[in-house]
Design a binder for these strands. Structure first.
Length: 310
RNA sequence: GGUCGGUUGGAUGAGAGGCUUAGUCAACGGUCUGCAAAACCGUCUACACCCGUUCGAAUCGGGUACCGACCU
């Protein structure tokens, strides 16, 4: 364990469209390491354009992990990512003193850098049972039940958010214990150094990049990609900005123009959410990239790495 | 010049004297420990203007302005 402390996990994060991908390729080369993607959508196959995956060329330049590896119908979670990413990091520790994690999925990053509680993964049957229960009995009934089974969690949970209520009940049902009993909420120690670097842009600038990128996605043939996965639209992996809006077009509900506007808007909202989340994390070293080219960004990061080595 | 109709928050759009805040969209702020690009919450309280009726008017009456339709 101790030897691993010579290792550093550099985490490059920031809101969508801020410019992580291009920089990450350069950084990976500089650090002679692979890229560990922390992106809950790029991890899936088939959805390439709409998730702004790195290009084929970029993927060839540097080895990427956790991109394009799961079928769309595969269940995955931040907790599973924690397990998988830690295993990978540990296996590469001997050959790569620096490792680079890149992405914007807040919970995935937190799961690896801060840890997530060990809560059993819910079995399909339980999940299905609870889904039916929710549909049949409604949110209020589930809330009432949770109040009996886990009053402590009931007090603090958002009673209108069915995802949280349902999950807590799933735990109670499957384990016979309270959800609270699993919620330790403790930061886990990692056997390596962690350096979080956040990329930041002025809002106007970021939003302009988002709008441009959405238009580019459309030009690159996003609509065809969407058409291919349309039959499986109910999958969670496809409950994703860019796809859900264009499904509406195929349904005949929305005009294409409106869908594109919504994609831009929803991407902006997503970016805002990411920024809100990251704002709480005091470990992040922020770099304002508005006026910096890639070279200058690399320079700043190099400086950070050096000052952090001591 | 005349007759009739309209004027509601950033946009759209209900409401026809009190049940204080329509709704939707946009914008903005936030929550978050298991599908998180998910799910959820909060803020933005307007009735063109003036005078009047009324305990009380976005809602009724009169006038002013602007817009529209029709008439001479």
């Amino acid at each position: 364990m101790a030897t691993l402390m010579n290792n550093t996990l550099v985490v490059l994060l920031g809101p969508t469209a801020v410019g992580k991908t291009e920089l990450s390729i350069r950084l990976a080369k500089l650090l002679s390491c692979d890229i560990i993607s922390a992106d809950s959508r790029q991890i899936y196959k088939e959805i390439d354009i709409g998730t702004a995956k790195p290009t084929k060329e970029e993927l060839q330049e540097v080895k990427h992990h956790f991109i394009d590896v799961l079928p769309l119908d595969q269940y995955y979670s931040a907790a599973q990512y924690e397990t998988d990413a830690l295993a990978l990091i540990s296996s590469q520790a001997a050959t790569q003193p620096y490792q680079l994690m890149v992405g914007g999925s807040m919970m995935y990053i937190d799961a690896v850098t801060k840890g997530i509680d060990d809560i059993p993964t819910i079995e399909d049957e339980t999940r299905e049972e609870m889904r039916r229960k929710f549909e049949k009995e409604g949110l209020d009934a589930l809330c009432a039940e949770l109040r009996l089974l886990d009053p402590e969690y009931y007090d603090l949970v958002d009673k209108k958010n069915h995802k949280r209520i349902v999950h807590a009940l799933e735990i109670c049902y499957q384990t016979g214990r309270t959800y609270t009993s699993f919620r330790k909420n403790q930061t886990k120690e990692r056997p390596f150094r962690i350096l979080k670097i956040g990329l930041r842009r002025e809002r106007e600038n970021l939003f302009a990049r988002i709008n441009t990128r959405v238009d580019q996605m459309m030009q690159q043939g996003l609509m065809d990609e969407v058409r291919r996965v349309y039959p499986r639209r109910e999958l969670n992996s496809l409950n994703t900005v860019g796809y859900k809006e264009l499904f509406k077009v195929l349904d005949g509900e929305w005009e294409l123009k409106m869908a594109v506007e919504r994609m831009k808007k929803n991407t902006r909202v997503y970016a805002k959410k990411q920024m809100t989340w990251f704002a709480h994390d005091t470990d992040i070293h922020w770099i304002d990239v508005d006026k910096l080219n890639i070279e200058q960004q690399i320079q700043q990061i190099s400086a950070l790495l050096e000052s952090n080595t001591e």
